[in-house]
Amino acid sequence: MNIWLNEQAYSPAGSSDLDALIHELSLSQQSVAIAINGEIIPRGQWQQTPLTEGIQVAVFQAIAGG
């Protein structure tokens, strides 16, 4: 399967959902936000959000501020 990850082609090594993708990328769940096709996905839905062919995933580093 091929997806777009931060506007670059990426082939997950077996990740089937967003939660697994974050683990595969060795990212901390607490420090990132994820959008699928331009829509932010709440952290509680990552395990229920499947990766599908050609999906556009944007991973953002969360930054505290105000």
Rank of each mutant, 00 (worst) to 15 (best):
P42E: 11
A64P: 03
A9Q: 06
N37A: 13
P12K: 01
A58S: 09
A58H: 06
Q61I: 01
A58Q: 07
I34H: 04
E24P: 02
A33P: 13
L25W: 07
E24N: 00
S16W: 10
I36S: 09
E24C: 04
Q56P: 05
E24M: 00
S15K: 00
G44H: 14
N37L: 11
Q45S: 15
L18M: 15
Q56K: 13
R43G: 01
V32Q: 00
W46V: 02
A35F: 07
T52W: 06
I34R: 02
M1K: 09
N2V: 03
Q47F: 07
N37G: 12
A35G: 09
I34M: 05
G65P: 03
G44M: 10
Q29N: 15
P42S: 08
S11A: 15
L27D: 07
I40W: 11
V57W: 01
S26N: 11
A9W: 00
T49D: 00
H23D: 05
E7W: 03
L27W: 07
N37I: 10
Q47K: 12
I3S: 15
G44T: 14
Q8S: 13
Q45L: 14
Q8Y: 08
I34P: 00
I22W: 01
L5T: 00
G65N: 05
I36E: 11
A13L: 14
S31Y: 04
S16Y: 09
L5Q: 03
N37E: 15
Y10P: 04
I40G: 05
I55D: 12
G14N: 14
M1S: 08
S15P: 06
A13R: 14
Q30M: 05
T52R: 11
Q29S: 15
G66W: 03
G44Q: 14
Q8T: 05
E7F: 02
